[in-house]
Amino acid sequence: MEAMSTDRSAPAVPATGTWRAKVPGLALAVALALVATAVGTAVPVVGGPVAGVVLGVLVGVLVRRRADPSSVAVLSPGLTLASKLVLQVAVVLLGARLSLAQVAQVGVGSLPVMLGTVVVCLVAAAVLGRLLGIDRELRVLIGTGTAICGASAIAAVTPVVRASGSNVAYALSTVFAFNIGAVLLFPPLGQLLGMDQETFGLFAGTAVNDTSSVVAAATTFGSVAADHAVVVKLVRTLLIIPIVIGLAVLVARRDRLAAGDAVGAPRPPVWRLVPWFLVGFLLLATLNSIGLVPESWHGPLATAAAFLITVALTAIGLSTDVPALRAAGLKPLLFGGALWLLVTLSALGLMALTGAP
């Protein structure tokens, strides 16, 4: 039976004449995303994106078992659109939540902790991932998801590295599992270590990934901690920018080497390697920074971004190769756990060294 899959070579923007073919898959992804959003609203610590990818995987398995191959194939064009263009538009809208002035708000003392944990995590992901024999795509997805901001970071790097649906699903599940651990363990750990509200806000904003989990952990500790954690978390999201640019350069170099034209062929300028959706993300963040995005728009745009990410990740779940997930085994989960532990310990260590906040 033919499996649903996203065509990595397909253009991000489909031809006008093919839109009708994309309706079935896109409609299914949107419908399941609405259910996932309701689940995420009822259980904030889970969140819509994680609920979407899980629901997508489950429904995808049922569709493959009960439908004939031609019925399954009908869904593919719409799922490809949702997992590419919809995801890229969602990343653009994330910029509306950010202000470049927020970097100053968190204070210079907070930045060493934030940057230090990111560097530790990314270096460990590269080294430990190779030692454990983790697939390169999975190393990138779990590493960036753990280092920066969970589902949002995974969403941003997925189109750049052209990650497979099964790897995206595994990475999201891994990051989510340790987010739950952080929500349960970090508040009592903060009490045990005698942290004040702002200190715990920095800790939660640095060592927890998805926004929903950051808010859940910090709110348990106190309202001041929650406010500080959200600001730290939003500034941390800005690190998506250099990560995506760096990955785009590496992927372009890898493609040139694979084509055998590394020697003598002109290299494209760096600006051509910057994905269009990252330019849109920066533009929207800049407009917000200078006050051209009304504050009354922040909530609706953030809601729209969250829903579009949920639609895209639901489509990725529907396209997931479940046997490939099983074949991955437990090593990626152990890899994600090791990175989560390193981020937690490095955050605590850097906070002690710098006296932050």
Rank of each mutant, 00 (worst) to 15 (best):
M1K: 14
D7E: 12
R8G: 13
S9G: 15
A15Y: 12
G25S: 07
A27I: 09
L28E: 07
V30M: 11
L32P: 00
A33M: 09
V35C: 10
T41K: 14
V43D: 12
P44I: 06
V46I: 15
G47W: 02
G47I: 03
P49D: 03
G52Q: 03
G52W: 00
G56S: 04
V57I: 12
V63G: 11
A67M: 15
S71N: 14
V74E: 15
P77D: 02
G78Y: 03
G78P: 03
L79M: 12
K84W: 07
V86H: 06
Q88R: 08
V92N: 00
L93P: 00
S99W: 00
L100G: 08
L100H: 06
V103Q: 05
Q105H: 14
G107F: 04
S110E: 09
L115R: 07
V119T: 08
E137R: 13
V140F: 10
L141Y: 00
G143R: 01
G145C: 02
I154A: 01
P159A: 02
R162C: 10
A163T: 04
N167L: 10
Y170F: 12
T174W: 03
F176V: 05
N179F: 07
I180G: 10
V183N: 04
L185T: 14
L189N: 07
G190H: 01
G190P: 01
Q191A: 15
G194W: 05
M195K: 09
F200H: 00
L202W: 02
T211C: 04
V214M: 04
A216D: 05
F221D: 02
V224D: 15
A225E: 01
H228F: 15
V230R: 08
K233H: 01
R236S: 10
L238K: 01
L239G: 06
P242A: 08
G246E: 09
A248F: 02
G264T: 03
P268K: 13
W271Y: 14
W271G: 09
L273M: 13
F277Y: 05
F277W: 02
G280R: 00
L287W: 01
P294S: 09
E295N: 13
T303E: 15
F307L: 12
V311L: 09
T314A: 10
S319D: 11
T320L: 04
D321C: 06
P323R: 05
P323H: 03
P323S: 02
L334R: 13
A338R: 11
L339M: 10
W340A: 14
S346N: 07
G349E: 09
A356N: 08
P357Y: 08
